[in-house]
Amino acid sequence: MELKTHISVQNLNVFYGNEQALKNISIDIPDKKITAIIGPSGCGKTTLLKSFNRLINTIDEVKVSGKVFVDGENIFEKKADVNRIRKKMGLLSQKPYPLPMSIFDNVAYGPRIHGMNDKKKLSAIVEKYLIEANLWDELKDRLHSPASKLSVGQQQRLCLARGLAVEPEIILGDEPTSALDPRSSKHIEERFLALKNDYTVIIVTHILRQAKRLADYVVFLYLGELIEHGPAKEIFENPQMEMTKEYIKGVIS
């Protein structure tokens, strides 16, 4: 199957028990750009994001129909290799969750899982991605202290470095700055802007200003439905749907 983009969603429906959280979503996510998923609370943003790496399958009562193609492969097919698919994506959650180990081991966790055991190479990997997450200078002298002792902002950047270390093509962020102070948020936003040259970035946000600052492409969801999507400029300056207009003006939230 020929597909233009890394991630392509076709007729995706997601149910939690009997409740439908996503209704017939179809969308192509542009490569090497920042896509922002926006919409009011409970509209299905997290659900959509977790569909991309099949993390919704860890919830027990979930039912999915439709297709999500990642590099041309339908990830919801039975024979799909979930772990390989997840390796293609780094995930940043709302609150950072470093792993219960040292800073070094956090970044090395993914590579080690995927079979890298060479100490020198691991050190190089850790250094490279801590630099990319803009943490190296702060942390290079205490790589072996626990990650739990870092500030929340540093933890989120560590989670970014950890995600980058498995060499993904895609970066997913679920309100990745919502637990952070303004300075740390700015740090993360800068990272995203720097990373979009090499990665496809998809973030969920309910901060419209953040979406305006970052996004090249915007996806607007409302009550589980895809209302409108398109280049950020068009969505923000000239939305087609009434609902989008109201949301952007701040009438519904």
């Binding site: 993390l55 772990n83 390989r84 390796k87 780094g90 959650s93 899982i113 995600g163």
Partner: peptide, 9 residues
Amino acid sequence: LEASYSLGA
């Protein structure tokens, strides 16, 4: 756990 899964573990 999700953080670990999302790294491909």
